[in-house]
Simulated scan of single mutants.
Amino acid sequence: MIASRDQFDDVMRHPSFQDTPCVLLNKYDAFEEKISRVPLTMCGWFADFRPVRPHNTNQTSLASHAYHYVAVKFKDLYASVVGGWKLFVFQTKALERRTVDDAFRYIREVLWWDDVKNSDAFGSADESSYSVDMSSY
């Protein structure tokens, strides 16, 4: 996890990614399997992880608590590196094509949001590509 954090930090500091939205994909199925074998607190970066223990099986699992905790850690790291940009996190299950398709759909949405945010979505009166002159119809 430390190697992943350090690599993420290095990549996000690279000038190629300046002012670029970022989506972090997590292979949740692999994470879920590992978290059941190795406590998250084994990694020093996650030493303060204190999951809420579910009282019944209908409550959120340990893996889910850990996933959200790790996502927040990466979001905090990302914010400290790039400033005001947000990190988008998405769960996938490598063997479930639907989740991979959903991830790419989500990435397209994030890129679309970024385009809309950076454009003048409504345009100003003098920049509009729509004519109000009836003679142009």
Rank of each mutant, 00 (worst) to 15 (best):
D76Y: 00
K34D: 13
E109G: 05
P15D: 03
S124R: 13
Q18R: 12
E109W: 04
R13P: 02
G83E: 03
A66N: 00
R53P: 03
F17K: 03
C43S: 14
F46H: 06
S64I: 02
D126E: 15
D9V: 03
N58S: 15
K27L: 10
D9T: 06
V70M: 00
N118L: 05
Y130K: 13
C43N: 14
R50K: 13
E33M: 06
Y78W: 12
S4K: 10
S4P: 01
G84Q: 04
Y69M: 01
F49T: 01
F104C: 03
H65C: 03
R37E: 15
F46Y: 12
F74W: 01
K117C: 02
C22I: 07
D6V: 01
S136D: 15
R98V: 12
W45I: 10
K73H: 06
Y78A: 03
W112E: 10
S128W: 04
M134N: 11
S128E: 04
E32W: 09
E32R: 10
E96Y: 04
S36E: 11
Y137S: 10
Q7T: 10
F74T: 01
K86C: 07
E127K: 06
N58P: 00
Y28F: 12
V82I: 05
Y28W: 05
R97K: 14
F104M: 12
W113H: 14
D48N: 14
Y78V: 01
R5G: 04
V81L: 14
M1L: 13
A47Y: 11
V11K: 08
Q59W: 06
P51E: 04
D19Q: 13
V23Q: 12
S36F: 01
P39L: 06
Y28A: 00
E33H: 10
F122G: 07
V23L: 08
Y67K: 00
T60C: 11
R98D: 09
S128M: 07
L24P: 09
A71G: 02
E127Y: 03
P21N: 05
M42D: 14
Y69I: 00
W113Q: 15
D120K: 09
G83K: 09
F31I: 06
K93E: 04
W85R: 13
E96S: 06
G44L: 09
S135T: 13
M42E: 15
T60W: 02
Y28V: 08
R97F: 05
Y137I: 11
A3T: 11
H14Y: 02
T60G: 02
D120M: 04
V82N: 11
T41I: 02
T20I: 10
M134G: 08
L95F: 14
V52F: 06
A71C: 08
Q91Y: 00
Q91V: 07
I35R: 04
